[in-house]
Write a protein that binds this DNA or RNA. Structure first.
Lengths: 234, 234
DNA sequence: GCACATCTGCACAACCTCTTCACGGTTCGC
DNA sequence: GCGAACCGTGAAGAGGTTGTGCAGATGTGC
């Protein structure tokens, strides 16, 4: 994303040009659209990083543009409202706008808001990329950040300990973890007390995510099956 | 910005001088320009903090001056219009002017407007540095700038603490935040006193935005549900 | 100063979880 | 095949965590 693309949607040529010029001066790759259909068409082609969108448009209005564009791919939208109309703002935000400015607005502020939206997008993608908070093992998904787990698309309710246990296993799919190791990871450092505690929780886990997903290795410990047995005969 | 520089652009020497004199008396460092090209040249050299700009100018008019100057660097512009022409005013604001005065104007008012512009710019640049303004989570919209919140399009009244709490949760949708984390974010650094305070406010929040939107994660904390239960009927 | 809204902390009840034990079935080494 | 070690299972008590209502403290605007 070396040169962020910005789409300016505004029917008044004077305002559109002036906004576009200002944003180009800031170093953005700016496209312009002057009505609803044109805006949607431009986005379908090649979605920009940010959209600056006026609400009052010929064709269909800003809300509709927002809906249609967002339906394809989520794009940050900075909304321009002619009046300080509470309802317009709230409606706009409800249909997917990310920020708003009321006319008359200062160019400085507009530029700042666009930059803020871009920062947010970048930050979000960085977070998604560098935070391996989600483990996928076959059709099992373990979201350690949200502490949720789905098996074959179905949400599974797990108790705290069950979740920690599964997260631990999912961090190394196919690898066998000893009871001692699991006790250390999930239960901190409990003097090697009843190792049967692990068994109990494995049992509970199996009952919830399917017994075949957790393999017992006799004399060693447990492992999460990397992929379901074979090509599932569905 | 110890001594703010002000550029006065006005073709009538009498008015120009009188404005300049008055502003100098207020302690500003004042330059003068008497036509469009001169104004642009002065700005290219060394942009002032504020421009007082007449619309009727020889060379090119005030709009053009405004556009060219703003293309280089955003500078607050106080526009002077001969008539009380709505179109002129709107066009001017669109090309980057920040305020306007209609002739005939009083010196006192002009001085006040210039001072207000300087204040506003300072404040705006502070604001611009802040984080994004709006969080959308499902059909829940949290406008941290306007400190407003809507659920399914309906405006919801929240107390300050409730709003901060929700904003904190909305900043990381689906992520579980511990009570300690929430105390740190919303209540600054609370000696680890009653974490039950969080519970109380969560209860109040749930009553207002719908209990199903805030998920309890036993033994860990709370999370905002990323998407509402049912698949959205588009 | 007063009325009002809001925040905080507590106590209680309800709920959820963890752990442990004993028993029976299974696997492994010989 | 046999013994020993290992694992699965079920149940129940103990302990911890959360939801809720309420009262006092605090802050705010008129």
């Amino acid at each position: 994303m070396s040169v962020p693309r910005v789409l300016v949607v505004e029917d008044d040529p004077v305002i559109n040009d002036s906004v576009a010029r200002r944003l180009r001066a800031e170093g953005y790759d700016v496209r312009q659209a002057f009505d609803g259909p044109e805006a949607v068409a431009t986005c379908a082609d090649d979605p920009p990083e940010v959209i600056v969108l006026d609400l009052m448009l010929p064709g269909y209005d800003g809300f509709e543009v927002c809906r249609r564009v967002q339906a394809v791919r989520p794009v940050p939208v900075l909304m321009l409202t002619a009046r300080d109309d509470e309802n317009d703002i709230l409606t706009g935000l409800a249909v997917g706008a990310d920020d708003y400015l009321t006319k008359p607005f200062g160019m400085r502020e507009l530029v700042a808001r666009v930059a803020a939206l871009l920062r947010r997008v970048e930050r979000a993608s960085e977070l998604a990329a560098q935070a391996p908070v989600v483990h996928s093992v076959g059709d099992l998904v373990v979201d350690t950040g949200g502490r949720r787990c789905t098996a074959a698309g179905e949400l599974v309710h797990l108790t705290p300990t069950e979740f920690d246990l599964l997260a631990c296993l999912a961090a190394a799919p196919g690898q066998v973890l000893t009871r001692e190791r699991l006790l250390a990871e999930v239960w901190d450092w409990p003097g090697a007390s009843g190792t049967r505690t692990v068994d109990s929780h494995v049992k509970a886990l199996r009952a919830k995510i399917g017994a075949e997903r957790v393999r017992t290795v006799h004399g060693v410990g447990y492992a999460l099956e990397p992929a379901p047995p074979g090509p599932v005969p569905s």
